[in-house]
Design a protein around this nucleic acid. Structure first.
Length: 382
DNA sequence: AAATCGGGGAC
DNA sequence: GTCCCAGATTT
């Protein structure tokens, strides 16, 4: 049932485009219309829905940060099978968690996931706290994820504000400005809070939060929003004014610098030398190929890794470019072979290096471009 | 080729 | 408090 909504403070969205009368009536019944739409047209059978288990909800929300539903589903199933509850996850070695996470990206999420499980076990006796503020203190959980968990698991009246919601709000209410900008984001938080349903049951709260997500993910998409099916089409500033492509305001452009690195593929038969990266920074904590800032330095490292065994000269492999948000990375791979095949002995005793069979890369967390490079190498063997 | 996207750490 | 960074995917 659409609950009667209490009068809102006269928050005006920071736009002059929305007619005041239309904006205020929309604000007052936004939540009831969204809930009605969600119940009829939203998603109801995702693997992490239809539960109030905060562990399952938390796990899904962490995985869904920066990652789409279809990608998350198999990982979510793997994690639940291996770690059926927060205590099992907390008790596992972090390397097991990293290996299971490999391929999902944003690996600090995996380390925080593990840390968070341990905090929940040690400080909360294995039960997630129910308040948004306590949830947001936990590793890997910020304001939006805390609100998602609190609303789904505990029926809390708290709003999410992720990329989908920012897009919906910018369009429906005509919020101008790049949402990554502090001022604009603050305005969106205020607007989102003002739209929450009052006196809603737990089920209504869940449907509202899910509705925000589903509307942005299924109708109000970036490229071609399906405005004909949208419950807010008649009131939506972007739709009414034909500005779907201009809202939300795009990030200001900036030129990205290019960096170049040399990577060593040191091979001993079917195995390659991997090196564990520092815990923070690019690919933090993952296993990757040894690097150097130029070819000569890489050759020196190759000889050092070779230890007593001779090492061939470096042979160029096909260069590749990996694009991050803030820079491009040109990778110059160089192949070297151990000449006397004692590599397995050469690096023993060093916790930051490992000889890994190409067929065994799955059990290590390896960055995607490095994995691709090594997969190509495996194809060329035999 | 360009744009996206929540949280944490640096500052 | 504010700014800057991370990586895989979609468009």
């Amino acid at each position: 049932m659409p609950s009667r909504l209490t009068p809102r403070s006269a928050e005006r969205s920071p736009t002059s485009a929305a007619p005041a009368a239309s904006a205020s009536s929309l604000t007052s019944d936004f939540s009831s219309r969204l809930v009605a739409w969600q119940r009829k047209h939203g998603r109801h059978d995702l693997p992490w829905q239809n539960t109030r288990d905060a562990y399952r909800i938390w796990l899904s929300e962490i995985m869904l940060q920066q990652t789409q539903v279809s990608t998350v589903i198999p990982y979510y199933a793997k994690f639940l099978a291996r770690f059926p509850d927060v205590a099992a996850l907390a008790a596992a070695p972090v390397d097991d968690v990293m290996a299971l996470w490999a391929g999902l990206g944003y690996y600090t999420r995996a380390r925080n996931l593990h840390r968070c499980a341990q905090v929940v076990v040690q400080q909360y006796g294995g039960a997630f706290p129910a308040s948004v503020d306590e949830l947001a203190e936990l590793p890997g959980i910020g304001r939006s994820t805390a609100a998602a968990i609190a609303s789904f698991a505990f029926g809390a009246r708290a709003t999410i504000l992720d990329g989908n919601v920012k897009r919906v709000l910018a369009r429906v209410f005509g919020v101008e400005g790049f949402p990554g900008e502090k001022k604009v984001e603050n305005a969106m938080w205020t607007l989102a809070e003002s739209l929450l349903p009052s006196n809603a049951s737990d089920d209504e709260v869940s449907a509202y939060t899910q509705g925000l997500m589903d509307l942005g993910a299924t109708l109000c998409v970036r490229g071609k929003p399906d405005c004909l099916r949208c419950p807010f089409a008649a009131d939506c500033v972007a739709n009414v004014t034909g500005r779907q492509r201009e809202l939300p305001t795009a990030r200001p452009k900036k030129v990205v610098p290019t960096r170049r690195t040399w990577m060593l593929v040191l091979r001993d038969g079917n195995a390659v030398m991997l090196e564990k990266r520092p815990p923070s920074g690019i690919w933090g904590g993952l296993w990757s190929l040894p690097e150097a800032a130029d070819e000569a330095a890489l050759a020196t490292r190759a000889r050092e890794f070779g230890g007593g065994a001779g090492v061939s000269s470096l042979a160029p492999l096909a260069p590749l470019t990996h694009v991050f948000t803030h820079f491009k990375l040109d990778i110059e791979p160089r192949l070297a072979e151990l000449e006397r095949g004692v590599g397995a002995l050469a690096a023993l005793g060093d916790a930051d290096t490992a000889w890994v069979a190409l067929s065994d890369l799955d059990s290590f967390g390896v960055p995607a471009p490095v994995r691709k490079l090594l997969d190509g190498l495996q194809g060329s063997l035999i």
